[in-house]
Amino acid sequence: MKWIAIGIAAIILIALIGGALYEQYARRDAAKRFPPPGQMVDIGGRRIHLDCRGSGSPTVVLEAGLDINGSLGWYKIQDEIAKTTRVCSSDRAGIMWSDAPPHAQDGDHAARDLHAALRAAGIDGPLILVGHSLGGPYMMNYTRQFGGDVKGLVFVDASHPDQIARMRLPGKPPESQDPPLALRIMGKLSWTGLLRLLPAQPGSPGEPKAITDARQAYLGHSIQGAVAEMKAVPKIFAQGGELRTLGDRPIVVLTAAKPGSPEELELEGLTPDEALARQKLWQGLHEDEARWSTRSRHELVPDAGHYIQLDRPDTVVRAVSEVVAAVRAGGASAPGK
């Protein structure tokens, strides 16, 4: 039994060493096969991927939500916006092409990273920030620290700093803020190469294969960054909530209002009435966000889920164009419907 145990341990050790070596090879191979579409900007000993397209002012900055897509999540709208002005997407530290941070991730660090990357690329404003989901608190953190450059904002089904408490339904337990166990395990084991055995995660309908393949190639790196962000969500919300006054900056708040399918409700453990109640709470949070500026518009998007930029990219492009026009007009009234 002793020698059997030693043999099993040796096999596991060899598998781990082999997997780790393969993971290092796979990461180098990914860098060759899927180079960053933008530029790798040095922000002081590490690099942030910044993908800027088009020309003109103001510069639109796209802030992704909490996922492993990073800058790739804007593929349906970035080139459309680039037809009328300069637009930049980026990968936060530890996601896709950007180097992992040397510190715990939070909203303030992410804002400083983005500001340093923009300045290193010669971009100093005026800026219009577009934030999806957790990108909402991230862009509010940026505005709190570097608000002189920020002239307008677009909230794309964005998170609200109070949503953890205010989205709780009566009779339902509080939602856990810890990353799911499966993701934590995946993050811890990413160095072993085991994630390479997982099937490619499906993207949105019509997603180009190159994007799907690139996301999968960088999965081992990005999953660690995403888990780090999940752990910091309460802190990111608290930091973002420190600023709730945007003055007269033009803003548009977009709310996904597509009802969940019966399968989705079952997965989330919600009845149709509970789903409707939750949607009303979500809409109320976005109405609150719209009140942060004296020049705002709140739009419900009934045929889009949480990723409005994928389900209804035209709606997001139109909202961005409205804010761009308002910023260019200076003292013009808030963008209309």
Rank of each mutant, 00 (worst) to 15 (best):
S57I: 09
S57A: 13
S57Y: 09
P58L: 03
T59C: 07
T59Y: 07
V60G: 00
L62W: 06
L62V: 04
E63S: 14
E63K: 06
E63N: 14
A64C: 13
A64Q: 14
A64K: 09
G65L: 09
G65S: 06
G65A: 08
G65V: 10
G65C: 09
L66N: 14
D67A: 15
D67I: 12
D67H: 13
I68R: 10
I68L: 13
N69Y: 14
N69S: 15
G70R: 03
S71V: 09
S71M: 07
L72M: 13
L72G: 09
L72N: 14
L72C: 04
G73I: 07
G73D: 13
W74G: 03
K76E: 11
K76T: 08
I77C: 05
I77A: 03
I77Q: 05
I77H: 01
Q78L: 04
D79P: 03
D79W: 03
D79H: 09
D79G: 08
E80Y: 00
E80Q: 15
E80A: 14
E80C: 02
I81L: 03
I81H: 02
I81E: 00
I81P: 00
I81Q: 00
I81A: 02
A82L: 02
K83W: 00
K83D: 02
K83G: 03
T84C: 01
T85L: 06
T85K: 07
R86T: 09
R86N: 05
R86I: 04
V87M: 02
V87W: 00
C88E: 02
C88N: 01
S89D: 12
S89H: 04
S90I: 15
S90C: 13
S90Y: 15
D91T: 07
D91N: 12
D91K: 06
R92V: 12
R92S: 08
R92Y: 08
R92M: 11
R92N: 07
A93Y: 04
A93W: 10
G94L: 08
G94A: 08
I95L: 13
I95Y: 04
I95P: 06
I95T: 12
M96D: 13
W97S: 12
S98M: 10
S98N: 08
S98G: 10
D99W: 12
D99N: 13
A100H: 10
A100Q: 13
A100V: 11
A100K: 12
A100C: 10
A100D: 14
P101D: 04
P101L: 03
